[in-house]
Design a protein around this nucleic acid. Sequence first.
DNA 1: TTGTTCAATCAACGGGTGTTGAACGGAGGG
DNA 2: CCCTCCGTTCAACACCCGTTGATTGAACAA
Lengths: 199, 199
Amino acid sequence: MPHPAEPPPRGDARAEQRRRTEARILAAASDQFVEAGYERTTIRAIAQAAGVDAGLVMHYFGSKLALFEQVTKGGQLPPAPTGPPGQVAEQILAQLAGSLTTEPVRSLAMLRSMLTHPETTQAFREGTQRFRAQLAAAIPAPDADTRAALISALIMGVVMDRHLLKSGGLDTADPDQIIALLRPVLRTLTTADPPPDPA
Amino acid sequence: MPHPAEPPPRGDARAEQRRRTEARILAAASDQFVEAGYERTTIRAIAQAAGVDAGLVMHYFGSKLALFEQVTKGGQLPPAPTGPPGQVAEQILAQLAGSLTTEPVRSLAMLRSMLTHPETTQAFREGTQRFRAQLAAAIPAPDADTRAALISALIMGVVMDRHLLKSGGLDTADPDQIIALLRPVLRTLTTADPPPDPA
DNA sequence: TTGTTCAATCAACGGGTGTTGAACGGAGGG
DNA sequence: CCCTCCGTTCAACACCCGTTGATTGAACAA
């Protein structure tokens, strides 16, 4: 191989055309996986939505599973909930508020497909485990792990209810109202309990 | 038709054999739907697990979808959370405690399959809507609907995390510990907030 | 006994799937 | 100009699916 001067050698119409086509396929695949899940999404449907032939999808991405992994790679789950103990709840709430208005596409695709496609489960678990570990580290309580797991489950349930289940009751609710109701809940879960209740 | 003395005319070996076979198919189908979801569950696999031919499954239940509906029918979602406002939280906790130890098979089958199979979505929505409506009626607050929806999402997330996702962090946790952590959360959500916090 | 009913099996069809390999056609380099 | 590369298409393969119809054989009725 003679020294390749520039990796993207400016003005290569073919390379750029390919990049665009790949991006179009990737976007179409993302939509389909989110809307229909892994099993019901067909490579032919992706190809049609991208305006190409099904064989081309295979030629570029190798297999349906590889394409799926490419789609779900990169974005992953919400960022790190690090910070002083008192601020953890607010950070989670801010993150959740974003997920209520904007669909977290990759998370939804992984979540939905994970429930159907076993090969995906491992990747999803690793993502949530990292999230929970960081979260648990920020909670000053002996049962921090369980608290973090509950918060993770709570977030998962809420996002699923709003974006996947739909008409589950949360899709029409005001995000601010949801956040306001969840604030005391998250404060309770992220801080050790005072006296339970002197009733 | 000559008056049929008894509908189950005692000692009909064929009828009882059929009932047993149907029950076996139903149980096998339930397992498969929960473990693999609707799409990945094949009639052939159900038949094999039940020790019969695939055609027999069709002959008894008509179609795969009809079989699935039969499996998910009946048990539905947790019973009514009615009662005095103060007791609602404890009732939910008791119900949830049961769902943590024993798998709510039908709910899981519906939940998992709903995420893949659109025809199932409606049935699941109706189930959760009834649950939420009854729950909202027991919550003395102006935003009772949103509160009920959040509780529903919370339960869904927890049950999913424990039984479907597995190793999501809640599968190894002690049920009593989970319930204890959730108690203040549900009390907060089922009762109108006192002063937010005078810090 | 004879005839009927019905649980259960078997082989097959039609369709949809992921995947493959050959073929086309225009852009790039000699 | 020709030759090669490469994005792209096309037709087909092999497989598995849900579903069906004919068929078998044992339990019931007469």
